[in-house]
Design a protein around this nucleic acid. Structure first.
Ligand SMILES: [Mn+2]
Ligand SMILES: [Mn+2]
Ligand SMILES: [Zn+2]
Ligand SMILES: [Zn+2]
Lengths: 142, 142
DNA sequence: AAACGCATGATAACGATTATCAAAATCAGA
DNA sequence: TCTGATTTTGATAATCGTTATCATGCGTTT
């Protein structure tokens, strides 16, 4: 029922798909493109599984992020947010509007140069995280 | 006694330089290139001013960051770190070694392209924050 | 059935930051 | 210089996201 890539990742990490984990996964799949906090995931998952607890949500999000089913990031130093991560949107970055808080996404293209440079310096780059703080077109007009 | 740029920024924001604030500023000036937590700043500032309190340190760091005397950033989702910010190192980015945790710095050069692109899209980019997670040359050898 | 191991949920603990508030210092005007 | 207003400070309480703990449950293997 789930995408083959997902079930493969789960199996490769011999990772049991309990009903709690399925509920979390369903929430994340149903909200692609959104950046949900653990509390928001709990709220949504309770609709499918009313007795699920916050600890399980945290544990599940953490593990899904570890096997790259989810992308975990923090935008404003307050709390982590999670989004479903397929191979299309894997490396993308965020523009956070300083006025309305809206988050939009940027493709990862021009960073490859910089990474290659660092690898020539002897680094082995595993990941990067780029955020732009800006006024979005709507807010800029005001 | 302080750089003219600093005193100007303080005056422009009619910002009184109390002995507590001077102690914090001294700590940051004496530790350029380091990324200090509030707790570490407190520890160091107490050597100059033993009665300074943690609340004042937080308040002072916050305000110095607001007028761009300090650069405030968070590396691993745990706590904020601060570093002195002059006009030379203003826009730079960090490589965090996933093994030893060492932080090194990257000049900000290749991001201008991306920013220009976003500005053409109607954004007004104010700041950006880029972190690389990598193995540093020493740790890569192991 | 018994023993094992992993998963769960309730809740306590943690830790960084912020809020509160009374006291102290500083400032502005008479 | 007195005086009242304003700002700053330090102790400490409160907040809040996250992690740790632990007893319970449940599926699997002997
Ligand atoms: Mn995103
Ligand atoms: Mn730095
Ligand atoms: Zn906006
Ligand atoms: Zn290293």
């Amino acid at each position: 029922m789930y995408d083959k890539i997902i079930t493969t990742k789960l199996k490769d990490n011999n990772y049991k798909l309990t009903e709690q984990r399925a509920a979390v996964l369903d929430v994340m799949l149903a909200n692609q493109g959104q950046h949900l906090s653990a509390e928001e995931v709990l709220y949504l998952a309770k609709k499918e599984l009313p007795n699920i607890g916050i600890a399980t949500v945290y544990r599940t999000l953490e593990r899904f992020a570890a096997i790259n089913i989810l992308y975990k990031t923090m935008f404003a130093g307050d709390k982590y947010r999670y989004e479903f991560c397929n191979d299309r949107n894997h490396q993308h970055h965020h523009i956070i509007c300083l006025d309305c808080g809206k988050i939009t996404e940027v493709e990862d293209v021009l960073l490859n140069n910089l990474e290659h440079y660092l690898e020539n310096q002897g680094y082995q780059v595993v990941d990067h995280d780029l955020k732009f703080y800006a006024y979005c077109p709507e807010c800029k007009k005001k």
